[in-house]
Design a protein around this nucleic acid. Structure first.
Lengths: 357, 357
DNA sequence: TTGTAGGCGTTATCAG
DNA sequence: CTGATAACGCCTACAA
């Protein structure tokens, strides 16, 4: 800047003023400065600027794991609106480990980020952390899940409603023995999805069999294991709602393992609608979650707050969309009478059905 | 720091010394400082530190698109080793657009990053950019692809060899009419894969039919379109090597469109071995690329260079691994006799050999 | 409208 | 081994 000032024969302050539009500099001077800037290829130092202003234009983005196929879209959404507004994203993976999350959150502090977008880890301590961040003037918005006692901005999807619709879809197809492999119940989104499932089941006048509700981690392995449990139950469920697509994938595997066909023997619906939902065999019905919008909206919210206009906490809820593909169909004929007799009981519907083949 | 100095009754300089181990401070003083640090919950400002040192501990990570399923693993690998060494990753998506890449590269300069890890965009101007970065003391390592005239550090995979193995696998299955949908030939990795394909074909004594080589973008749509072209050719190829898994997915779709079965009618093999390769129907054979290692290695290289020990440019090449699944099988019987009748000569050695099978 | 000067939190140099 | 002190590059009262 000193060089520019010299080159343009003005003072340091004037250079700063034209650069930040912080004062009306007379046109000729302004031009000289701008020319000098161009000539010298000047790049303002965000470090010095941040030091002075006690705030940078970086946004900390703290997520469980970029390798989990749901998150890239969220990150991309956030990065796009951040970049468009002159902000940069610092990416941190927590692996859902709250101590790692805390470590990242602490380390980020050293950079005085303008804000934080975080998808809380399991047992996240975010509420406390965010408090201290806010005192330092950096806002935090929470995405996808909400940690305990959270009182700040929030962007989530309509988990309950999405799960409700998915389950209702199964019911409308004629299913009566509905099971679910839900995500970890300490996560708000997993809780909400279970709630939606239950609401649909109850509303159909069916009872919720606790054995038909299995809790799993949000991954393929968990889905596979818990589906195994479900499929050993008698009577066997004819439809399964999976807490997310990764779980659904595991369920699909378990179905194959058991020699059951999807959707002929058991219907399956997931949540997320990841890209691979169209690639499985059969193609997976799922509840679409607007991942990109989630991230983009979070960034927008954050920037508005950074701008300082908003003060009250806002909770945005984005809509989901039911994607019907091939993994959901009416229950097998044999499953319907089954309720009446009991001889078949022992072998379960799967076994008895196999006879037909 | 001033507070700490006061609290510990030492000077500012001493505080800095104990914090940075930049001088042997006598134990009692050291303790007092450390206590004060803990008591005040002191967090050093990376901004001030960066300002003074003219370098921060941030690493710019510039990639085409985090939403492309190959990149998350790379980013994760880089983030893990960066974080483990006290560095943070600033993520930038270029969408393979060199002007966007340049914009990001310029913007990043303002943060005086310690280094850059970049997967160059199409027509990247990285070589020039990196030069000016190096003059400012920040090193750049290039991952996955190499821009024109690149003379810096590089981490790639053995693309040529991987493609060669994939193609040889097809040949060993008995295929003689081998086609490929390769990636954009201005990208080094796509070039190398085509070279590997050609080498295998030639080595088998087959001729490379230019019509059997289609160039596409690295995505599903391109793969679908170009596969359509290939399948309209006569004689129809019996095996297709796809430049990456996304292309392979498109090819698979085209196969379905044409009522062709994979692998019974046409064999298909991809490159990357993304997660979804196991989910397609049939499961996709592919060449595994160590994405995580790519990123981790790049970060390691970068940090070594930042540490200042290394001066000569290094080019690391990671191995690929052939993953045989269900999309590759011997060619259909009907494809073999076809060669026998009349002028086998014209059709080349490949055709004549078909008789033997 | 323009210029001056102090200070943001660190590190590094140099003198004691 | 420790303590002053001068930058680092920028912003912003405040003065002119």
């Amino acid at each position: 800047m000193k060089q520019i000032a010299a080159e343009a024969r003005v003072s340091l302050g004037t250079v700063s003023h034209v650069l930040n539009r912080t004062a009306n500099v007379r046109e000729p001077l302004r031009q000289r400065v701008l020319e000098a800037v161009a000539a010298l290829g000047y790049q303002p130092s965000e470090l010095a600027r941040g030091l002075r202003r006690e705030k940078t234009s970086m946004i900390g983005m703290v997520i469980p794991d970029i390798t989990n196929p749901f998150f890239p879209a969220v990150v991309r959404g956030a990065e796009d609106v951040a970049f468009a507004n002159g902000y940069r994203l610092v990416l941190c993976n927590t692996d859902n480990d709250h101590s790692k999350e805390t470590a990242h959150l602490n380390a980020l502090r050293a950079y005085r980020p303008a804000g934080l977008i975080v998808i809380p880890s399991n047992f996240s301590d975010l509420t406390t952390q965010a408090q201290s961040y806010r005192e330092a003037g950096t806002s935090v918005v929470c995405v996808d899940r909400t940690p305990p006692h959270w009182n700040g901005d929030t962007v989530t999807v309509a988990n309950e409603e999405g799960a409700y619709r998915a389950t209702r879809h199964l019911i409308q197809l004629g299913h009566r023995r509905l099971a679910t492999v839900v995500g970890p119940q300490h996560l708000t989104n997993a809780q909400q999805r279970l709630a939606g499932f239950k609401r649909a089941v109850r509303q159909a006048g069916l009872s919720v069999n606790p054995e038909y509700i299995q809790e799993s981690t949000f991954d393929k392995l968990g889905g596979h294991a818990k589906a195994g449990v479900l499929l050993r139950l008698l009577p066997q469920p004819t439809a399964i709602f999976a807490g997310n697509d990764l779980i659904a994938l595991g369920v699909l595997l378990a179905l194959h393992d058991s020699g059951l066909r999807c959707p002929q023997d058991v219907s399956l619906i997931g949540f997320d609608d990841l890209d691979f939902a169209e690639m499985t065999n059969p193609q997976l019905s799922s509840v679409y979650q607007p991942g990109y919008q989630l991230g983009a909206t979070a960034a927008r919210l954050l920037l508005e707050r950074v701008a300082g206009s908003i003060n009250v906490a806002r909770h945005l809820v984005l809509e989901t969309e039911l994607k019907i593909r091939q993994s959901t169909a009416p229950p097998p004929k044999s499953a319907q009478p089954i309720a009446a007799p009991r001889a078949t009981r022992k072998r379960g519907p799967a076994a008895s059905r196999r006879v037909r083949l």
